[in-house]
Design a protein around this nucleic acid. Sequence first.
DNA 1: TAAAAATACTCCATAGGTATTTTAT
DNA 2: ATAAAATACCTATGGAGTATTTTTA
Lengths: 297, 297
Amino acid sequence: MDLRHLRYFVAVAEELNFSRAAARLHMAQPPLSQTIKQLEHELGFALLRRTTRRVELTEAGKVYLEDARAILAAVDPAGDNAGRVAAGRVGRLVVGCVGSATYSLLPQLARRMRSELPDVEFAFRGEMLSPEQVDALREGALDLGIMRRPQDTAGLALTTIRQERMWVAIPQDHPLAVHEEVRLTDLHDEELIVHAGAGRSVMSGLVQDMFDEAGLSATIAHEVAETSTLVTFVAGGLGIAVVPEPTATLAVPGVVYLPLVDVPDSELVAATRADDESPVLVRALGVLAEIAGGHDQ
Amino acid sequence: MDLRHLRYFVAVAEELNFSRAAARLHMAQPPLSQTIKQLEHELGFALLRRTTRRVELTEAGKVYLEDARAILAAVDPAGDNAGRVAAGRVGRLVVGCVGSATYSLLPQLARRMRSELPDVEFAFRGEMLSPEQVDALREGALDLGIMRRPQDTAGLALTTIRQERMWVAIPQDHPLAVHEEVRLTDLHDEELIVHAGAGRSVMSGLVQDMFDEAGLSATIAHEVAETSTLVTFVAGGLGIAVVPEPTATLAVPGVVYLPLVDVPDSELVAATRADDESPVLVRALGVLAEIAGGHDQ
DNA sequence: TAAAAATACTCCATAGGTATTTTAT
DNA sequence: ATAAAATACCTATGGAGTATTTTTA
């Protein structure tokens, strides 16, 4: 028994006339009669009571008609549902993001995703450190991470979003604040504010490495959890912070941003599980690439 | 697309291995691969991600699997449901009955039907006059009527249940009560109690006809609505009643039943709509025939 | 007698089989 | 090297067609 039998039976039951039903099904009448007979034989009971003049449903036929309609009504939407998933138009995606992109890239991404894929359920988690995101990705708690390129990339697929120039956030009344730009040597013996957990934040590790390579000593004055706190501390005159370019858009009274000219750019990457081919993810990466490109110009 | 595709896909999705799935489906592996590929082509998206070493479901595949399982799960029970209707094991039947059979035949029928067809919903309406039942049958308010053979049988199918001998119910202290049997002439000038509505009750019409044919005059002392009232009136000495045999089983103190020997038997019939071939009805008629037979012996 | 379902047969599309190749571990 | 999926090709069942007969209103 297959759907053909159900489709044919429904047509005959609705027309109550084999010839008309056959026409509706774009086929000849004899094979239709045959097929219905075959279905009845298979079921073991009559669905229709027929003379050459009148066709009518038996009680069993009425019941079977309802069930057949229900089954047929479930078949096409089944393909549609799965099709929408395949097209990445429905699904669920948890996106993590480092602090520096939380206030520039993430809101743009969220806005674009919600308007382009209204049926996709998104969860955004900002202010996550890169190693945190790597763990969360591996555990499945995160589907997409926006982070600094991490050390351990096993099982992950990384795509560069963009290179970000390094800047420093300086209190307005600091002697360096009048400069056009800053060199690493200018920061020698200055008090620095970094993200908490030297081993846990790629950014603070990066700052540490820069000083080590330059043979300079870094004085860590404060460790903070969030980027906004970092900048607030600078505004309060508690020290200087090295931040990636997008953070320099966080306009806070009392803070001046200057480019750090002699250090390499920091790479912002999108990380996913290497085996995750979810269509929603693919579309999210596409949107991300568009935003990154637009921002560079 | 037919159920074959769904069955095959579910098998592969559950085994995550084409060879094993093919074995489970009692077929070779190549046609299975072909069919799945064809299904994916038809849907326009991939259901499975496969290498020669590993087969896994895509996101769309997971969604389609759920829908496919739901559809397949709905297919077999569909036949079962209708099959039970075809076998007359589920359904609904409204049975009407004349007063004289309400207390003997109807309870037996109800008991037998409820035990043999527990899933059939029965409604029994006793104390219905025959013409009332004929109208109710035609309107569809009744599916089966147990009645005296009516005049107008157009569109109805009648089957005789049994012939019932006529008896008289006489007050204990009446002179006739000491007889062994009664003749119609004995009732000349006696006061009679009959069912209400001469034109509406076949039984009272029958009594009237008997007297007319015998050239006797019937004195209608009372008209009542229910058979139990009829007998109660007799017990109260308000007159004599002509009743069919089964009513004589209604033992009421002060009432004596005697056979009425020189009148024809009354025919009790089962009436249905001629075009009603409901399996439940067929089974009900079968049960009715059995009960009638058993009662005759 | 006329309209519609059933029967008789014919054909070809395709479901399924066998043999073999490709591919990834 | 091997296990498993894909490819190539073949066979035959049965779905659908045409022609005809049967049935009932």
